[in-house]
Design a protein around this nucleic acid. Structure first.
Lengths: 214, 214
DNA sequence: CCTACCGATCGGTAGG
DNA sequence: CCTACCGATCGGTAGG
């Protein structure tokens, strides 16, 4: 996905792209402030002064990293939801959104995780711009809940704002413990979605288990 | 709570305590690395060299901040659970734990939030020590779920580890959006607990609404 | 994209 | 708890 084909992209663009990936990786591993321009340059195989040929400042690199991450999330979830059959209900929509969010965070790991920690380190203007993008992303989720309310699938008196925030919080935190190697995304995301939908209570007729059934 | 009475505490101890609170505040607001020893000193009304009379290093201060936060959480939740009647069921235990976690994070705001962002900035040894404390805290939660499984209150096939992590993730993220001023903790924590217990689905008989009922 | 460099700031220390 | 200071490192720039 990152490196498609040759295309006609100018040479500098390729390097800038590679440089950003290197920076994102270091930002994620050590944190934005703990990563020096010299380290980024070294990891990218160039001298520190050369960084400024590609980006006007270190902060610009961070902004670019953060923008990639949130746009990737927005696009992925948008696509996922569009591809669902129109008849898809709340459970399927939620499952799909959760799974896509989790998978995208994994695919864009360095970009996504660098963003989470570094939001506090950018200028107020940049932060505001980034929060606008986040807000747009939140709207995708809001719609899932609002639709489910209209269709009567979820309780009419449910306060969907905190529900949404809890879910996104749970997802954003998952990188702290979810083992990326084992590809347990599908299982974990279905578990979360079903927990939200059905709860964890033992019941006479245990609800919906589409996956992981014997 | 912080400043109890006069007691017999040596003078230096009071200052060290105050200094830590000041540091925690700055760590939270700007981040650990973005906060200089000089800034801490200035905010505490002393010269930067004097910091080292109280703490051997900046990192030591961060470690102290983080330890306070996680110990406060452990103690608060332990007490809360102990004070519940032995007959209390899963829902009540979960509600109590969620509310206490949320309230404690708020009460120890600077300490708790500084910790979340700064874990990546301490030495491997300190990090390991801190993660041990976190693990202990996690055990308190684990017990709630394991007990509920034994009593048959929650589904026997439920994988409680991700459930627990999702809940703690949702709680830790809540500081990003939950309005601390409005004291909406009780409402938010009941909502989360009930969502986990019952799910959000509309049902013939809508489940458990102890609070916020007409 | 490199060399050579600048001013600023950092955490920390010696000695009182 | 202060004064005075150190070496190291930082982001960034000029000029090529």
């Amino acid at each position: 996905m990152t490196r498609t084909a040759g295309k006609t992209a100018p040479k500098g663009e390729v390097s800038s792209e590679r440089l950003l990936a290197v920076a994102a990786h270091l930002f994620r591993e050590r944190g934005y402030l703990a990563t020096s321009v010299r380290e980024i340059a070294k990891a990218a195989g160039m001298k520190s002064g050369s960084i400024y040929y590609h980006y006007p400042s270190k902060e610009t690199m961070l902004e670019a990293v953060m923008t990639r991450a949130i746009l990737a999330l927005s696009e992925a979830v948008t696509q996922t939801l569009e591809r669902l059959p129109p008849a898809a209900g709340f459970r399927d929509r939620l499952r799909a959104a959760v799974a896509t969010h989790l998978k995208t965070i994994h695919d864009y790991g360095d970009f996504a995780l660098a963003s989470r920690e570094a939001l506090g380190q950018i200028s107020p203007d940049s932060r505001e711009a980034h929060l606008r993008l986040r807000k747009e992303y939140g709207k995708l989720w809001r719609k899932i809940f609002e639709d489910a309310k209209k269709s009567g699938e979820i309780r009419a008196d449910l306060d969907v704002v905190p529900v949404q925030m809890f879910i996104l919080g749970a997802l954003n935190w998952s990188s702290e413990w979810l083992d990326a190697e084992r590809r347990s995304f599908q299982r974990a995301s279905d578990l979360l979605a079903d927990m939200v939908v059905d709860g964890v209570l033992a019941r006479a007729a245990p609800p919906a288990k589409k996956l992981r059934a014997p």
